[in-house]
């Protein structure tokens, strides 16, 4: 645990230097977005990686967080810093609601995935029709630069904010790995009947996981709204976010502390390379993600992190044999 904590601190410290050491605006931005997707991936990882419940609709949580903070700010004049925890809570509640309905009736595997996908779509359609979200036109958040409004004139502020969120997500996951709740969550993933026989309340464990996962994704949504100052139903509840959220931990390593981080940087590295090679053909990134998903599931089910660990163990083992 101490080694993992040290690794987290070292990573955060190294990242904190990026705005000072990297001159290129493009690359600073790139790192910032990789951190943003790492946050979403880590949120998904709690439910999907540790809990084994594959969600295809994390946009439902992300979008709810984004809209909650934007609506509170635009329509009710609530300060974004106060709207932020409210966004996390609203997204957590949506998680609890979806979780209650699907876990109560024992939905698992692809059925659970379909239900989450459906909820995200329902919310997207809803956001398209109710006036409070600005319908299809979208919601414009007024530009009022100033740290007090969670808007930063130079983007360094945004950089540190997402870094803080990622730090929070990493610490939360570290706690998960060393807590009774985490042990029970993993037991539920591995075998529900065996977990029940050992006194684990499977329903409550899953419900807690989806609530936590949703809340974390909601924070990501709130951040996104403040960063781009614009939301529409397609951005907030569209499938792109859901796909990113699940692909990042699958590439990096599901159910591992650093998997989503690794996955996010790898995935966005590949995506940039593809843009350089093929230009910005629309939909190309999604096609590429599809291919990657198939390759990962076929050849690296444990993700980059898992593969790295196995290779390292083999190398060290080999040296000992020699």
């Amino acid at each position: 645990m101490r080694r993992q904590l040290l690794a987290i601190v070292a990573f955060l410290a190294a990242m904190a230097l990026v705005p000072h050491l990297v001159d290129s605006e493009f690359w600073r931005n790139w790192v910032m977005m990789a951190l943003f997707y790492a946050l979403l991936g880590q949120a998904w990882n709690i439910l999907g990686g540790y809990g084994g419940q594959f969600s295809f609709g994390h946009a439902a949580f992300f979008g709810t967080g984004a809209y909650c903070s934007a609506i509170l700010h635009v329509h009710y004049g609530v300060n974004p810093w106060i709207a932020l925890p409210a966004a996390g809570m609203a997204a957590g509640l949506v998680g609890a609601f979806i979780g209650f309905l699907s876990f109560r009736y024992g939905l698992r595997g692809s059925y659970f995935a379909l239900v989450t996908l459906a909820f995200a779509e329902v919310l997207r359609i809803l956001a398209n029709t109710v006036p409070i979200t600005g319908k299809g036109v979208g919601l414009l958040i007024p530009l009022e630069p100033g740290a007090a409004n969670m808007q930063f004139a130079d983007r360094t502020g945004y950089f540190y904010l997402i870094l803080a969120f990622v730090g929070l997500a990493l610490l939360l996951t570290l706690w998960l790995e060393h807590s009774r709740f985490g042990a029970r969550l993993v037991a539920v993933r591995e075998n529900e009947d065996a977990a029940r026989a050992l006194g684990v309340d499977v329903f409550r464990t899953k419900l807690a996981a989806i609530t936590l996962s949703g809340a974390l994704a909601g924070l990501g949504g709130s951040y996104y709204a403040q960063l781009f100052l614009y939301l529409d139903p397609g951005i907030a509840y569209g499938p792109a976010i859901s796909v990113e959220a699940l692909l990042v931990p699958i590439v990096g390593g599901m159910g591992t502390l650093f998997g989503p981080l690794l996955g996010s940087f790898a995935l966005h590295g590949v995506s940039e390379l593809a843009k350089l090679a093929f230009g910005e053909a629309p939909g190309l990134d999604l096609a590429l993600y599809g291919v990657l998903l198939v390759l990962m599931v076929m050849f690296m089910p444990n993700g980059l992190f898992g593969m790295g660990r196995t290779t390292l163990a083999r190398l060290l083992g080999g040296r000992r044999d020699a």
Binding site: R180, A183, R184, V186, A187, E190, N191, A194, A195, L198
Partner: peptide, 24 residues
Amino acid sequence: VQPFAGLSVRENIAVGAHLHRPGR
């Protein structure tokens, strides 16, 4: 038999031990 296949033996038994022991 229904082992938690991905976990170590120690972690498997610990799931049972957690019933009356909250601390990891």
